[in-house]
Design a protein around this nucleic acid. Sequence first.
DNA 1: AATAAAGTGTTGCAATTGCAACATTTATAA
DNA 2: TTATAAATGTTGCAATTGCAACACTTTATT
Lengths: 209, 209
Amino acid sequence: MDQLFANIKPSNQGKILKLLEANRLTLPKNVNLFTFILNENFIGLIEKGNIQIIKNDYNGNKTIIEDLYDENIFGSMITGISNKEHEIITKEETTIILIDYDRILDLEYQKYEYYNQFLKNLLKIITDKIQDKNERIEILTKKTIRNKLLEYFEILAKKRGTRILYLPFSLTELADYLAVDRCAMSRELKYLKEEGFIKVSTRRITLLY
Amino acid sequence: MDQLFANIKPSNQGKILKLLEANRLTLPKNVNLFTFILNENFIGLIEKGNIQIIKNDYNGNKTIIEDLYDENIFGSMITGISNKEHEIITKEETTIILIDYDRILDLEYQKYEYYNQFLKNLLKIITDKIQDKNERIEILTKKTIRNKLLEYFEILAKKRGTRILYLPFSLTELADYLAVDRCAMSRELKYLKEEGFIKVSTRRITLLY
DNA sequence: AATAAAGTGTTGCAATTGCAACATTTATAA
DNA sequence: TTATAAATGTTGCAATTGCAACACTTTATT
């Protein structure tokens, strides 16, 4: 909520949600959000919890497109997801706010001064999201598994400000994120360990370089 | 201009540009925009021309991050580019409008009713850009050169509504975009031709499946 | 606590890819 | 027009990767 409603008084936050006919949902673990989303274009805002946006292609390959936590945002327009090819899965109990995107772009709200601020906040959240995409592209662009891993670690280290990294997901999911074979990645991690570049214990990775 | 100023009267368009202290520049072919951009955070809007945003990594690998034409938008916040690692190169004579991004997010403009529309237009442009990123990720996620090519062709075909495709850039640049070795890609294109999947003549590719 | 399910580690092998080196064609500029 | 640069095509070979099959460990669930 923080980001989307930054510089908007709490009393006006409720008004915006009403104007937009937003719905708040709390869902248990392991459900597909598309069961609950009926609009074509929507924005979802995670109040608390964790969801993953997953694409299954015709080869049976599964790709994690996004892995999202509190205050993150997702949606058909933003993420380019559709219920035909994608799943939005809650990884734990999650509370989301659903907004009809078409209402956001509707002109009639412009008379509310706080709505302008709302749009700016939305803009900020979305540009942050583009940064994430760029990082992912940066990683996927590397030609070897080793370089993908190192780039990923580097980005994570910069974000967290430490070289002791706690992976936000399992190694299986990491392989999906990097779009490489899990076994091949496991092998490469072993080499990196043997060559003294990293130390690994469960999901904690220490960068030694 | 069209997209960014959709539903804004021409007279107000000029006012917005003035409010934002926007600069219009016309640049010759093959110059690096960073020579002209001094702000930390900026948005560039292409009125006419073609630019590429290129990243050079420490291995000397060059990656085309974006290939942009008329009415497209780019910028530090949107594209995550910085003059340390990136080049913004004009591929032909190009006219751009440069806007200080920080001014856009500044609150004092909210009293102008057309400014709200401007923000909404910006939002739309940016969400479109996310779609592009998603497509790129979709492609990079494929594990073989063949599948990357086919995914790329498929996306292009859907966009253009035809299975006769004119590539928007050279094969060398396409290899960069797909993040694969040019020679290996050339070989794979040959196989695709031999197996009757595609026909190629210069930059025209016909999908036969 | 027992059982099931999910995640991890390992490795041989075949397929795919990057790299390098070079020939040829096409585009650009003097 | 000619020289120059850029783009494209080709191919052997070594490096990297995906795949498959399996053992083992950790995490959930009843």
